[in-house]
Simulated assay, not measured.
Amino acid sequence: MGLFIMTDPKSIVSEAFRVLRTNLHFSGIDRPLRKVMITSSIPGEGKSTIVSNLAVCIANTGSKVLLVDADLRRPQIYKFFLLENYKGLSNLLAEDLPLDTVVNTTKVENLHVITSGPVPPNPAEVLGSAKMKKFLDEVASVYDMVLIDAPPVNSVADASILSALVDGVILVVEESSTEREAAIAAKQQLEKVNARILGVVLNKVKQKDGGYYYYYYYYGEDNKRVKKRK
């Protein structure tokens, strides 16, 4: 799976992640961003790829980063970093485990990962629990940035519930497969729960001159549309 920022750091894709990192930094000048959730409108839009590359990109600056897989239904983060997933976030919350027993180190300096752990019978209740809030507050006091991979907004209630516990939300939309109505519905749902939407990443946009897919994004304070093309 694609950790482009590691395998091809000089590529146009990697540069897009660096600009995304910079914009995220500037979005937190007036209101600090320590806990940021990445979600999508529907499954398969590449949110896990986006959050994994962004986590590596931020860690490369020397910031201490924790990547949390809170997609307790279809976890993917452990695959990117070649980790086991027999123990993770769901165990931490259900079994009151010490934090250090579920934190994984990675080959990337400054980057730690908490995988999802086994799929619980009640993911929404687990993510909306007081224990989840306490956990996020605890890790935000230890790490410079906590990035959270959440389930798609339109599929289940999990992302809407989590949005109340974080400082901001990034919505990932895939250009080639996401219906406009689905993207609008996701944005409206997040607004209903008063989520702070930091921006939208438009994923897998085809270049005019060669058919190469890369990451292209809309990102801006107060949802102003900002276009970056390489």
Rank of each mutant, 00 (worst) to 15 (best):
M145S: 11
G117S: 02
N23P: 11
Y86C: 05
V126N: 00
Y217S: 14
K134S: 14
H25P: 00
D69G: 02
K230W: 12
A59W: 02
R31H: 12
T39L: 09
G128C: 06
N91P: 02
S176W: 06
A140L: 06
G220N: 13
A164E: 13
V102D: 02
V156G: 01
L66K: 07
A140E: 02
K134P: 05
R18L: 13
D209Y: 13
L92N: 01
D144M: 01
L165I: 05
V201W: 04
Y212A: 11
M37A: 10
M1W: 00
L165W: 02
Y143T: 05
I184T: 11
Q188G: 02
G210S: 12
R21N: 09
N60Q: 15
G128M: 07
Y78T: 01
E95H: 11
S14Y: 08
L127Y: 03
I148F: 05
R74E: 13
P9Y: 08
A183N: 09
V201H: 01
L136C: 08
V65M: 12
D30I: 06
G62M: 02
R196N: 15
G44H: 05
K134M: 12
P123Y: 08
V102L: 06
N23E: 13
I114P: 01
V56F: 02
G211H: 08
I197F: 08
K131W: 03
V173Q: 01
K107R: 12
Y213C: 08
L198M: 15
L89E: 01
Y216I: 14
R18K: 13
L162R: 03
Y216P: 12
G2D: 14
I184G: 05
L97S: 05
Y216R: 14
M132R: 04
V51G: 10
D222G: 12
E191H: 11
V139L: 07
L83E: 07
M37W: 10
M132C: 03
Q76G: 04
L165R: 10
G88T: 00
L33W: 09
K10W: 09
Q207N: 14
M145D: 00
D69Q: 09
K47D: 04
P98Q: 01
L89P: 00
E181N: 09
A94R: 04
S41H: 11
L3G: 07
E179T: 06
I184N: 10
I161Y: 04
N23V: 06
N91C: 03
D69V: 11
M37F: 11
S14D: 07
A124C: 07
L165D: 04
K227P: 00
T61V: 10
E84W: 06
N223E: 14
T22V: 06
H112T: 08
I29P: 03
I114K: 02
R74V: 12
R34T: 10
E179I: 00
S160F: 00
R31Y: 13
Y214R: 13
T7Q: 14
R31C: 05
L72D: 00
E221C: 07
L3Q: 05
V68Y: 07
K64R: 15
K228C: 07
Q189P: 11
R225S: 11
Y212P: 06
Q76A: 15
G199W: 10
I38Q: 03
R34C: 00
